[in-house]
Design a protein around this nucleic acid. Structure first.
Lengths: 124, 124
DNA sequence: TCAAGGTATATGACGCGTCATTCAATGACA
DNA sequence: TGTCATTGAATGACGCGTCATATACCTTGA
């Protein structure tokens, strides 16, 4: 294996390591303190960001690496947890708008603090 | 949200994006051409690396972010595929040594080329 | 206005990783 | 030597993400 190959592999492993450590740390912290996982938080975060313009499911799919079907299931869980609501849309009845509930906004606010803190701690 | 927080989040998202794109690209390519996933390849790669000193399961667990039980299952699949063999160890009969089969060595050699190429392509 | 194709979301089967547990083997120490 | 704790690995239940579909709705064009 050429030297550059070895370096590539080392670089990749360190990226993997950083990624895993960071995402696990965040995931566990959110799970423990707020009973939601990292993917759930990220959806909350995206919805919170686009709170001015109502947020369609479709738009979410374009902003995460998650599959459309994964997004649908994450939203399911958030809705069951009472953090998020789906509203059907008169213009196009296939579409759904998403909106944080009061509980969702509150939880997001608190969880975001934790999230940012852990990012700062883990991203060199 | 403070400016630094926003930057943190952007940085994190770009890491996530790079990580997902790279690992998906590798995973799909390996799956398509060699019928093994990324985790399977990484175990093969680790075993191949330590081919001088026989490689214990335990040692693998320490070198990947995977759980011990995940490693055990990946090794199951590789063994079923005839790419890897478990050998019991006389010194400590709880331990297992792992060794690539001829087929495993050959596949690893070919897959590694693909793997390195995709890393080079995806790591800026 | 009607068929044909495209789009937005939901759903079910499936694979994989994790956790908790189990089991056998080893070590430590009286 | 006999207990008790520890260690290496395997296993089963479970949750989640993905793929392939299904379903409802929309759009286009003749």
């Amino acid at each position: 294996m050429a030297t550059t190959d070895r370096q590539l592999v080392e670089q990749w492993r360190s990226i993997q390591d950083a990624y895993f450590r960071t995402s696990c740390a965040i995931d566990r912290a959110l799970e423990a303190k707020f009973d939601i996982g990292l993917n759930e938080f990220e959806i909350l975060d995206l919805v919170a960001e686009s709170s001015e313009t109502a947020c369609r499911m479709k738009a979410l799919g374009e902003r995460t690496p998650m599959t459309q079907s994964a997004v649908s299931k994450v939203v399911d869980r958030l809705e069951k947890a009472g953090l998020l609501a789906r509203h059907s849309c008169a213009d196009d009845r296939r579409s759904l708008f998403l909106e944080l509930t009061a509980a969702g906004r509150k939880l997001h606010e608190q969880a975001a603090v934790e999230h940012r803190a852990l990012l700062k701690e883990n991203l060199s």
